[in-house]
Structure formats: structure tokens, C-alpha cells
Amino acid sequence: MLLLLYGITLLLSLPVTLSLFGAINTETERSLAPLNLLNGFDYTVFSDFMNRHDGAIWPLLRAGWYSVLVYLITAIWTTGGVLNSFATGYRAVSFWQAGTYYFGRNARLFGVTLLFAIPLLVVAILIGSLLVIAVEDTLTERGIALIGFAVLAIFGLLLTLLLCVANYARVMLFRTDDAVAFRAFGIAGRFVLTNLRATFGPYLLIIAVGSALFGLYFLLEALLPTRNWFLILLLTLVQQAFIFGQIILKVWALRVAFEQVKR
């Protein structure tokens, strides 16, 4: 099942990636200059390239964004399959059926999540800017920066809590075979808040593990110079392992919620 989820990411990203590979190769017009980009970064080569050839690159970056949106829809669909696999074990046919069966309510739940997340974002920006404007004349630069960080941290924490609630709501929609996303969200909210340590705790831990992995990745990237094809492929392998790790974390978070709600 994990392989299937990973396969979907790869499958959705590969076409536009390969197009980009082709486009860069064509647009560099056999130049020697891009070789300077191999080990490190060369602003002159990069900016000269983007100045002349951005017309060939931007559409592909936009296409990349579209494939992200397609993935998002796919992910709504796979959620049902994953939950079903928790309950009955993974079978391709039932994964497919459950995904389709739960797609509607999971999509609505996604809508509900956005309904909370977007106002949260707006309020955070509003409060952040109002605070900065209010203290701008009295506080030092460090003070203003700290306020910014504090607002960001609080927003991040609330958003994580929101996503945690949505995670439990997803499990409840599955467990109780309820189709009303809003109600499930409310029940999940109460459940998470009353069992904060048991629910939000592991969720935060998983997010922390993900962030730590990210740090690890940047360390590895700095250690791996991309001098030639072999090293590039090696780095790509590391990157893919990292993506796989993220998929595991996401499924793990759902699994934790699944076990919690059962009890």
C-alpha cells in the first residue's frame, strides 16, 4: 500500500519532470555554460538562461502546480482506501472500492478543513500586522521580529491542531459510517480537545519527526555534491527515500488516529 501511494506521487510528477529535463536540454542549446551549475550554483549562467528561456520553463512549472492539484484529489481518494486497509488489510480491489466509496465525504471534509484553515490564516495575518503596526514605534527590531515569530508559531500550532482534528474526523467518518463531514469534524474536535495528550501529542511528534528528517536531508544534500550523473542519481535516490519517509509518516498519523478512535 505504501508503495502504491509512493507510486502515485512519482507517476504524477514524472511527466512534467521529464518535460523539464527535455526543455532544459533543448533550451541550453548545447552550451558549455550549464556545466558550471553542476557543482554548486552560478548566478550568471542561471540568470542568463532564465532571461532568454523562461518562456519554455514557466509553463512547465505551472504544469507542476497542476499535477500537485491532481495529486491532492488523488490523496482524498486514497484516504478511504488506506483506512479500509487498516480495518481489513490491504487488497487492491477493496482499496479501490473504499477510496471511491469514501471519496465524497472526504472531499467535503477537505472543504470543512479549508473553511477553518483559511479564516485562521487571515486572522493570523491580520493580528500579526496589527500587532506590528501597534508596536512599530516603540519596540526594537528584535522585538518586532520576536512578535512576528510568536504569531507565526501560534498560527502554526493552531493549524497543526486543526489538521489533527481533521485527521480524527476522517477516521470517524469511516468508523461510524457518517457522511456529514461537518458533524464529524465537531465530534473529532471535542475528542481531540478532551484527549489532547493522547491525540495531539503523537500528531505533533510525527510532525517533529518530519521536520527532523528535513534537517537531515539538507545535511545530506550539503554533503553530496552533484558533480556528475552518478552523484546526481545518488542524490535523487536519497530524495526519493525521503519522500517515501514522508508518506510513511502521513499514514502513520492516520493509523494512530485509527487506533485511538477504536478504543
Partner: peptide
Amino acid sequence: SAPAGKYAGKFLFWLQNTMQ
């Protein structure tokens, strides 16, 4: 084609990250 490979690899990685 290694430079193109490097940036295609980077692109792939960040695209998948955004998805995740």
C-alpha cells in the same frame, strides 16, 4: 545532460514535497 538532470531531479523532489 547532467545539468538538466540535476535540476530535473531537484524539481521532482520539490514537486513531490509540495504534494506531500
